[in-house]
């Protein structure tokens, strides 16, 4: 099926002609991923009652939690501990979602639709957090909920218009606003395409190298598996790290205000 112009490649990526899993296949792989996450979590919970963690899964999840917490607090700031559950969910979904490809033919993260779904969730969550920080600030100042919600929403939107310029520079503010909106939209694309490209590229490299060694019956491509494992960790980390950076960009003003208040007193 040929389509003209720019629609072609995007459409063929979305329809996953040949390479990625079909929709049912994706659902089955997702079921696998969820099963692995829930099973390991349940096993980890069993070790929580003992004074020292002897359970392997409990230890693993403890280290993972410490890593994520360190990343959140380091990137977002002291109020970053609030976002640990969300970030850890993303990390687990991406890591286990890519990790299954080391044992099965493909993985959910090698499909663009799954990644785009996660990126959409991340970006809309960031917007929600931006609005709700303004809301909390305004509520603290004694505004009623409806006013705080509306004003908070518009204050969040006004962040897109860049620095405050004079009345004569309104066209420039408008242009900045449009560009910022577009860049906000492109965050979805960049997050999802990066993950999809890295994971799918790894699969295709393995396939190509297996093809290379097929005449001597040696699956050379499988020697790439350690690199793929590294890719799983790094991509999960980059996705969550960028989400943290986006969150810190929209919720940072809280700290500044607190500092200003501290200086004023």
């Amino acid at each position: 099926m040929r389509m003209s112009g720019m629609v072609g490649p995007v459409f063929s990526l979305l329809a996953s002609g040949g390479h990625g899993p079909s929709f049912l296949g994706l659902a089955i792989y997702l079921f696998f991923v969820l099963l692995i996450i829930f099973a390991t979590m349940t096993l980890a919970k069993k070790g929580l009652s003992s004074r020292v963690f002897t359970n392997v899964f409990a230890k693993l999840y403890e280290q993972l939690y410490l890593f994520i917490e360190n990343m959140c607090v380091g990137t977002i700031g002291p109020h970053g501990r609030k976002y640990v559950p969300m970030i850890m969910t993303f990390w687990l979904a991406i890591f286990v979602g890519s990790f299954v490809a080391l044992f099965f033919p493909t993985s959910p993260t090698a499909d663009l639709s799954f990644n785009l779904g996660m990126a959409l969730i991340a970006v809309f969550y960031v917007q929600h957090e931006g609005i709700s920080t303004h809301y909390a600030e305004l509520r603290k100042q004694g505004k009623d909920p409806v006013t705080a919600g509306v004003v908070g929403f518009f204050r969040h939107i006004s962040h897109f218009s860049g620095p405050k310029l004079g009345i004569a520079l309104i066209p420039i503010t408008l242009m900045i606003f449009v560009i910022e909106i577009i860049s906000e939209m492109m965050k979805n694309v960049s997050l999802s395409l990066r993950l999809f490209g890295n994971i799918n590229g790894g699969h295709q490299a393995v396939e190509a190298m297996n093809e290379l060694g097929s005449s001597v019956y040696i699956p050379i491509g499988n020697f790439l598996l350690p690199i793929k494992l590294l890719t799983c960790v790094v991509q999960a980390m980059i996705f969550t790290l960028l989400t943290c950076v986006y969150i810190s960009l929209v919720t940072h003003h809280e700290d500044e205000h607190a500092h200003e208040a501290a200086h004023a007193h």
Partner: peptide
């Protein structure tokens, strides 16, 4: 460094897809 790597890598991925 990882953030910068991710941004540079994206350029190549966009090239591959576009």
């Amino acid at each position: 460094m990882l953030i910068a790597l991710a941004f540079v890598e994206l350029v190549f991925l966009l090239t591959v897809f576009i």
